[in-house]
Amino acid sequence: MTTGNDPVLQVKHIRKSFGNLEVLKGISLEAHEGDVVSILGASGSGKSTFLRCINLLEVPDAGEIRVAGEQVAFKRGRHHLQVPADRRQVDRMRPELGMVFQSFGLWSHMTVLQNVIEGPLHVQKRPRAECIDEAEALLEKVGMADKRNHYPAFLSGGQQQRVAIARTLAMRPRVILFDEPTSALDPELVGEVLKVMRSLAEEGRTMLVVTHEMGFARNVSNRVVFMHQGVIEAQGTPQEMFNEQHSERFSRFILSHA
């Protein structure tokens, strides 16, 4: 259980290899209530894999994950690979770590509203009327209330991503993981999604954001983490990171993304 200053998310020494390629070489990160952490890095630096390891869409080879004080239990599986010890624990903890994907992943056979109430209704087994009320309020918040009966195929990328954010919020997550939420969008649609994310940050939501949006990292987040080849190369507040030339590599990275 959390007391005042315990981190809501605590990740220690995460390692992950795909075959012979070591993608994550021992990454540790903490997030307290209300933190907005931007994770930057070049393609292939392991930032998406790191995010996916946190909610076990990829199972890390080693390391600890603790959400609101509860530690994910692992055991040794086949070929001595680490696997989660208890599937039910994983199913229970995943919604606490809401995930927003680069490619949205809205369920194509459900309308916008059905997408948003699906998790609360069928996973968390909350009453239908309550789920619908909350879903409508969330859709209002992301500006998608008028499209509640549309199927995802009839929405633009920006609209789909805003629905996906509402779907994640409907599970009442303690931390929201954003995996390059604007990378699949046309440039003119990026703004509407960033605006929603900024409003979530202002509400005091705890967020981990893998992104290429330097403006968001600089202006919205309160911590910036720079990953390079599977390790955290530099981290600090946006002021420290962007103004004080923290690391040579990071400076070059910023220049190439300016």
Partner: peptide, 10 residues
């Protein structure tokens, strides 16, 4: 992606 979204929702 849609299966992963389901997993992520528990």
């Amino acid at each position: 992606q849609q299966i992963e979204a389901g997993r992520a929702a528990g």
